[in-house]
């Protein structure tokens, strides 16, 4: 159901764009209006979500510590798992954001036939995630070539590395294929790992199918229904300079690709894809474990009703005196 829904939704999106361009000539809608709207939604939505998170304070210092704390000088601290200052926090965050350290250290729990539990290492999620994210990033960077009149310096590097194997004509870019493969794996694991299947929502399948759709349409344009890149560049530069034009000779497949990307952009701030921004704000990751060294302030800390020592002594004075425990008010009985 959830899975089918995602496929149908993405297929519907494809058909809408295809039909819109092919039969109703809505190039301007799909080439200009929708992308602008999507970008606006993406930017505003993203900012809104981050501001919303930021508006909730962090009342307590609650890092999750993964390793030895800083205590006595002769005990080696695990600086990247249990940071005690800002520099070390940056180190920890760097490993999380750029190398997905937690996923790298993932384990897998299994029962043996003799009813014991054993824990093995589990690297596939890490491998697929990190390949997915980096190929996505590279593909994104490669697209900048459409948006600038002359190619920036990094493009040549990316392209030469990317097309290293010089297979086919036009040259096969590895990233596209790897992106597709890793996304497909992320999708497949949601089906065949029983627990992951059990927890997956439509909102988990949908973005994966959407990205698969984007990658397939992109590759179709590059290798099958060749698209006039010069015209695409005219369109892109037009969008960028707020003087949109619809050049002749761009096939419907391009509009389908663009439409799916637009949907992804618009959907982004509404969804779990916001983990991109959220990870930086996560208090269990981005705080230094220094709560005994520096007082953390809770902005909404308020006075509470406590049971004072005086009340306690009033309750137990005689027993305390009987047990030889010093009291504040020797002669007083029952609080009088």
């Amino acid at each position: 159901m959830r899975i089918l829904f995602s496929f149908i939704a993405v297929l519907a999106l494809v058909l809408i764009a295809y039909a819109g361009v092919k039969t109703a000539n809505l190039q301007f809608l799909f080439g200009v209006v929708v992308p602008y709207a999507a970008i606006a939604l993406f930017i505003c939505g993203f900012i809104y979500r981050v501001v919303k998170w930021g508006s909730s304070p962090v009342p307590f210092c609650i890092p999750t510590t993964r390793g030895q704390q800083k205590s006595l000088p002769w005990i080696a601290q695990n600086k990247l798992g249990n940071p005690s200052n800002t520099m070390e926090v940056i180190g920890r965050m760097f490993l999380e954001v750029f190398l997905f350290r937690s996923l790298f250290l993932n384990t897998k729990t299994e029962m043996t036939s003799s009813n014991r539990v054993v824990y093995g290492s589990e690297k596939f999620l890490w491998l697929a995630s990190i390949t997915f994210h980096y190929t996505f990033l590279i593909v994104l960077l490669r697209h900048t070539e459409f948006f600038v009149p002359t190619a920036p310096f990094f493009l040549d590097i990316i392209k030469s590395v990317d097309g290293f194997f010089e297979i086919g004509l036009p040259r096969l870019f590895l990233t596209g294929a790897v992106l597709l493969a890793s996304t497909a794996y992320l999708f497949a694991r949601r089906l065949y790992i029983p627990q992951v299947r059990y927890i997956s929502l439509a909102a988990d399948y949908f973005p994966l199918v959407l990205i698969i759709g984007i990658a397939i349409t992109g590759m179709l344009m590059r290798y099958v229904y060749l698209t006039d890149l010069v015209s695409v560049k005219v369109l892109a530069l037009g969008l960028l300079s707020f003087k949109p034009v619809i050049p002749e000779g761009i096939g419907p497949i391009f509009y389908v690709h663009l439409f799916l990307v637009s949907v992804l952009l618009a959907y982004f701030p509404l969804s779990k894809l916001m983990h991109m921004g959220g990870v930086f704000l996560s208090p269990t990751l981005n705080m230094a474990n220094d709560s005994r060294m520096t007082r953390h302030i809770n902005p909404w800390n308020y006075p509470v009703h406590v049971h004072t020592y005086e009340e306690y002594e009033d309750d137990f004075r005689e027993k305390m005196i009987g047990a030889g425990i010093p009291v504040e008010k020797e002669g007083v009985v029952n609080g009088k």
Partner: peptide, 8 residues
Amino acid sequence: DICVRCGA
């Protein structure tokens, strides 16, 4: 908000 339900 941000759980991706990766299952880790």
